Each structure stands twice: as C-alpha cells, then as structure tokens.
Amino acid sequence: YIYKRFPQLHIHRSDFNLDWPELWAHLRMGLPMAVQFSVLGLGIIILQSVCNKFGSDQIAGFTTAMRVEQLALQPMISFGIAMAVFTAQNFGARRFDRIRDAVHRCSLLTLAFSLFAAVVVFAFGEEVIGIFLDNPSPTVMEAAHLYILYTVPVYFFLSQIFIYRNACQGMGVSMIPMLSGVVELIMRSIAAIYLSVPFGYEGICMAEPIAWISCAVFVFAAYHYFVRLLEKKYTPVN
C-alpha cells in the first residue's frame, strides 16, 4: 500500500550508484572536520606531555580537572550541534536574518550558562572535584582546583567557539573549523611550553584560556566576514 501511494519510495539499483559530485560535497565538509578533531586531540596530548613533567599529584589533579571540564562542555556541544543544524537549514533557505538572530540568542544563552558555571565552581569547586576523586591528597585537590579557577572564567569564550565554528560549518565554510583547530593547537602548545618554564604547573593552567580566547576571536571574525560575504552573494539585487 505504501509503495502504491508513494511510488517515489521504491528502491532501485540506480539509487546505490555513486554520485561523485555529492560524494565530493560530503568529503569537502567532512575531511576538514576530521582534521580539526585530530588537531585538537594533538593539542591535548602536547598539554598532557608538558604536565607529566611536574609529578604524579599534578598529573592526577590535571586529569581530574579535565573530567570536570568535559562535564561542563556538554551543554556547549549541544548548543553547537543545534547551531550547525539551524544554520544549515536557514542557509539553504537564504534566511541570513534568522542565522544572525540565532547566533545572537545562543551567545546570550551561553553567557548565562557560563556565569552559572562560574558561580557553581567558585562556590562548590572542591565538592565538584570530589565527585571524581576518593580521598584525594591536598596537593591533588589544589592542582585540580587551580586549573578550574583559571579556565571557568573564560567558559564564555569557549562557548563562542562552538557557536561561531558550527555556524560557519552550517553555511558550508568548512575550512574555518579546521583553521580554528590549528589556531587553538598553536596557541595552546606555545603557551603550555613557554609559560610552564617561569610559572610551572600554573603556566599549564594558563594555556587553555589563552587558546580559547585566541580561537574565539578567530571564529568570531571569520563568521562575521563570511555571513556578510554570503549574504551579499545570495541576496538578489532589486
């Protein structure tokens, strides 16, 4: 009955033929994203390798703080996914006004979340860290708490990376996510390597905020450039 009513649902052998232009379109979007995640993973490895020089307590504190950070990242990742889907749909409809409005609203929402996260961590930081540790030593707790105190105040910049990077991805500007990952890798690596010399473990804690702020500035500028460029390109001249 379904096939009779909806004949377009019939599956034919031709449906499985490779459409090279469509395949290339998927590769053009997917490969830069794959490179982006590889580059970000490399940055975390470099940061961890520098941290390993400071002893087991600092390693344990840093690893625990990263777990807390991953927990806080989940709402930001969700905003980013929603932004990519919404932007792609409205880019197809050439509704750049909706894209701009969505980016603005998501920025305000993530600002509220960042402030909430900062209040929770500053008020209950040790309790949050204690969720991931059993009877930690004071040194481990101090190392984890120090990292969080440096990173939480710049969660807003981290959230903007997800919003603007995914907005660019939704508009088909696939190179921006990859380049933003490169910017983040370079700044994180330079900061971790060179700041750890005069400041020790505290220099590693500074590396993430420096990387996030630098990357946020890059994707912010890239988004505003390309949204104006694409809007001008696809808006008909009366």
Rank of each mutant, 00 (worst) to 15 (best):
T63F: 02
Q36S: 13
H104T: 11
N52C: 05
F79L: 15
V119T: 14
R95G: 08
E69R: 08
G41A: 04
Q89L: 07
N90T: 14
V85K: 13
V119S: 06
M76H: 05
H10C: 06
L18F: 02
Q36N: 14
V50M: 08
L9N: 01
L42C: 10
V119D: 02
C106W: 03
A117Y: 04
S49F: 03
F113D: 04
F124A: 15
T63I: 06
G80C: 04
A34I: 12
A93E: 10
L73V: 09
F116D: 04
A82F: 02
L9Y: 00
E126N: 11
F54D: 04
V39Y: 00
W24P: 05
A118G: 12
S78A: 15
S38Y: 04
Q89E: 10
E22M: 09
S56A: 14
N52W: 02
F16I: 01
V35W: 02
F37C: 08
R94L: 10
P32A: 05
G41S: 04
C106Y: 07
V39K: 00
F54Q: 03
G92M: 08
I129M: 06
F116E: 05
L109I: 05
H10F: 05
Q8H: 09
F96L: 10
V128N: 03
H12M: 14
F79Y: 10
V39G: 01
R94P: 04
N52A: 14
R94S: 13
L115R: 05
R100V: 11
F86W: 05
M33W: 02
I2L: 12
R67W: 03
V120K: 07
I46S: 02
L115I: 15
I131R: 06
P32E: 09
L47M: 15
F91P: 00
V39Q: 00
I44G: 08
V128M: 14
R98Y: 13
G80H: 00
T64G: 12
I81V: 14
M66P: 01
Q8R: 12
L18D: 01
Q8A: 08
A34E: 06
L23H: 01
M33I: 12
V39M: 03
V85Y: 01
V120E: 11
S56W: 03
G130Q: 04
A123R: 15
F86H: 06
Q89T: 12
A34P: 04
P7Y: 02
F113K: 07
N17T: 12
M76Y: 08
L109Q: 11
V85H: 02
S56H: 06
Q74T: 12
S38T: 15
I45W: 01
G80Y: 00
M76D: 06
V103Q: 02
L18K: 02
F6H: 15
A25F: 02
Y3T: 13
C51E: 13
V120Q: 08
V128A: 11
F113S: 07
W24A: 14
E126T: 14
